[in-house]
């Protein structure tokens, strides 16, 4: 099933009706395993959600986590963005957040939100990303290795012209 990856350009392959178009999310090799606290930002491509007490976490697919003070659900207050390249999964025990950072399982201490710390990293727990989205019947921007390492795929507008890469 996964063998049909990458660009399919042969005319014998009938291009299906494409349901969506994706473009790669790149990270540089230096950035790949760097966890950083960033200012609040807007939701763009939200994924999973998680809540503990009054903390609400919204995953920004393949990019990290929006941390939100949800003490008043009528008035949620974004606190910061925690940049974790490749992240799509999270869970918490006590003060610790577990997340996927490309190939690694990381543990982040959230006990002091002013001083968020990575406290544990287990290498090569996850497989990392393919040079194509895992979805079928989608078009995508062909991967350009010069731009960095693919850490995920985000929705983009379908180009008006021909779609070069699809699966």
């Amino acid at each position: 099933m996964l063998a049909l990856g990458g660009c399919i350009e042969s005319e014998e392959n009938f291009q299906p009706t494409l349901l969506a178009y994706y473009k790669p999310v790149y990270a540089s090799e230096q950035e790949l395993f760097k966890i950083q606290v960033q200012p609040v930002r807007s939701l763009h491509d939200p994924g999973r959600i998680y809540t503990k007490g009054t903390l609400l976490i919204i995953n920004e697919r393949f990019k990290g986590f929006h941390l939100i003070d949800n003490a008043d659900p009528a008035n949620p207050k974004p606190l910061m963005f925690l940049e974790v390249p490749g992240a799509v999964n999270m869970a918490m025990q006590g003060q610790y957040l577990y997340a996927d950072n490309v190939t690694d399982l990381i543990t982040i201490d959230l006990s002091d939100l002013q001083q968020i710390k990575e406290v544990n990293r287990q290498k090569d727990v996850f497989e990392g990303f393919k040079p194509y989205p895992l979805l079928r019947d989608v078009g995508f921007e062909c991967v350009d290795k010069k731009k960095g390492i693919v850490v995920g795929w985000e929705l983009a507008d379908m180009p008006s012209g021909e779609v070069e890469c699809w699966r």
Binding site: R48, I49, Y50, T51, K52, G53, L55, V88, N89, M90, A91, M92, Q93, Y98, A99, D100
Partner: peptide, 12 residues
């Protein structure tokens, strides 16, 4: 533990 949604692939 906290609480995730039904799409979770991590759970405590």
């Amino acid at each position: 533990a906290g609480l995730g949604g039904s799409m979770a692939q991590f759970t405590v």
